[in-house]
Structures are given as C-alpha cells and as structure tokens.
Nucleic acid binder design. Structure first.
Lengths: 144, 144
DNA sequence: CTTGACCTTACAGTTGGTGGAAGGATTACC
DNA sequence: GGTAATCCTTCCACCAACTGTAAGGTCAAG
C-alpha cells in the first residue's frame, strides 16, 4: 500500500503519516522507487493512533499505549493508569473552561451590545485584579 | 518603571512582556541605558492583556479588544461580538472534551486494571471505526 | 509523449510563549 | 574603589502536533 491508500483507509492526512514515521510511531518498508510501502500492520497502528489522538491522548501517551498494545504480557493496570491520568487532565481542562465560560457569560449579559461605547466587558478587563469580575459575581463589595 | 517592576505589578513574566512588545501589543519607551521604560499606561495595557489571556482570548482577540478599549467612540456591540464568538469556541471545546471524557470513563470502567493483559481499552483503540467504543455505548450491535 | 495524479525530501510557519547563553548596567556592600 | 549580585539587553533555539509550500522524481492513461 502507498501512503495515499493508508491515508484514505486510516482517515489520517498523508502529511501526518509521514510525520508519524518521522517521530518513530510507524516504520513502513520502502519500495524500490523510494515510495513508502505499508503493511496491514502499519495500517492497524495508524488507525490505533488516529483513534487515540481523537480521544485527546498526547503523542507521548500514544507511544506508551502502542508499546502496551504490542506487548501481550502487559498488565491492564498500566493501560488504565494512562487513561485515568488523561481523564484527570481532561477534567481539569473542562473545569478551567467552565470557569471562563461562566465569567464570559456574565460579562456578555451585562453588555448592552449596541452602538454606545459604554461597555462593562472592557471595564472588567481593565479593572485591577481585586475588582475584576468580582463585582459581577458578588455585588456587595466584599472581597471574593 | 523597569521591566521587572511591571512584571511584578502585572503578574506577567518579563519574558512574556518582551514578547508582547515584539508582537506590537505594547510599546514602552527606552531609557538612555537601553532599558525599557514603562509608563502607567503600559502597565494598564499589560494588566488588561493578562486578564484577557486568562479568560482564554487569543492574542488576536486581545489586539482587537485593546483597539476597542482605546477607541472611546467604539460600539459596545463590537466588544460583545468578540466575547460571544469566544464563548462559542469555548462551548465547542467543552463539548468535545465532554465527549472524550464520557468515552474514556466508559473505557476505564470496563478495564479491570490488574496484572492480567486483557484490556478493553486497547481493544477499543484497535477496533475499526465502525465498532470502536460503539459497543460500549450501545451493546446490541446496531450501528451508531 | 505529454498530462495529471501520485510520490519524495526539506524547510518554514502555526500559537503563545519559555529557556538559555553571552554580555552590558546598576546597585549593595566592604 | 573593587567586586559580587542582581538587573537588564539581544538573539537563538525549543515545545506540540502538525500544516503549507516548493522543487522535483515516478507512474499510469490516452
């Protein structure tokens, strides 16, 4: 199989596949014309990588997961640990984004969004840290 | 004020402040010794930038927001539009992460996480797209 | 025999900074 | 006045995980 074939079959761009070879995630053979020659196994690996990446695993995670995948003596605990760590990172990210979301939603709500220049959003962004968005979360002046 | 002072006051690393000058977000004066000389206004700008960045705005957004901040003829609608667009991107990101989270949580739950090599996580990652994690979402074999 | 689709490598750019080296300026202290 | 510590300067390289582009080699169809 040429790179175009595995690209179609795996759903990964050819560029990405070349990149994955570059960083040692796959290692296709070479035809006499210099073209990469992928085996079934390479295709499987690439599909594995694509799925893992789509679940947000880092390339480094992918490397570990692939190693475990190919090691039939592995302990499932090792796999689970990677997943749970990743899950923790995702939860943290969701947490951060939700906080941003809440603040931004408050700000957007407070802004008239018309032709006038008065804008609580800009006022908040310009406020010193003590004040910033605190007056929208609790409006009685107590420190947050 | 030297860069160390504004770094302390704004909470931004000196490196970041230099970078912001590099990309044209601030434009401090220079003392005769070549040191950057920040005015009050520069400090305000940097604090503004720090707050906007902490809310997840891109540097490009920050540029637009700063322009609007400094334009006293602005329409608050322009500010609100930027915020709402950003809010949309955040919601999308949260959505994506939540989907990942759900899939990963299912997988982790299904995995014994012990010394044995059997691992539904690896099985899922290796499965072809038709099957992948679908069998965990609906276990009757219907296509998802 | 040429056209077009495919393949190759290599280098630059993306985002938003961070780290480090090499060297000049200033301040503190003896 | 010397010197050590702390600032400050510029410049270049690096992070993730690709993506874009250029310049060129290969192959199958008509």
């Amino acid at each position: 199989m040429n790179i175009g074939d595995v690209a179609r079959l795996s759903g990964l761009p050819a560029k990405t596949i070349r990149y994955y070879e570059d960083i040692g995630l796959v290692d296709p053979l070479r035809s006499s014309n210099g073209y990469r020659a992928f085996r079934e196994n390479d295709l499987h690996k690439l599909a594995f990588l694509g799925r893992a990446r789509s679940l947000g695993f880092t390339i480094d995670d992918c490397r570990s997961l692939m190693r475990l995948y190919e090691d039939h003596e592995r302990a499932s605990a090792d796999v689970k640990r990677i997943v749970l760590e990743h899950l923790g990172r995702i939860d943290q990210k969701i947490e951060e984004l939700s906080e941003m979301r809440a603040t931004l939603a408050h700000l957007a709500e407070a802004c008239a969004g018309d032709h006038r220049p008065d804008c609580p959003i800009l006022a908040d962004l310009a406020a010193d840290p003590e004040t910033a968005s605190g007056h929208l979360k609790n409006d009685d002046g107590r420190p947050t």
